[in-house]
Amino acid sequence: MALDNDTVHGIARLARLKIDDHEVEKYSAELGNILDLVAQMEAVDTTGIEPMTHPFDATMRLRADEVTEHNQRDKFQAIAPSAERGLYLVPKVID
């Protein structure tokens, strides 16, 4: 099941990836192959089966409401691509 080019571009946009026009065919075929591999799932009747999201059906542990973290801004922003006056800078966001 090959994906059409529009679908490939659409998924790429959702994932903030750019697929060049000359690569689209390749991606379309490769993704199609993976979907073919996955297609075996369709045949299985899973009526009444509860999806298993976590191994062993683990349940959540909660933590106490305590402030345990302290300011590490300088350390964290030392590795930032662009920061100024304590803020991370990005190209203008337009609402």
């Binding site: 100024e84 304590g86 803020l87 991370y88 800078l89 990005v90 190209p91 203008k92 966001v93």
Partner: peptide, 8 residues
Amino acid sequence: FQGQTGID
């Protein structure tokens, strides 16, 4: 920020 947006 010279046309950029700051994130807090």
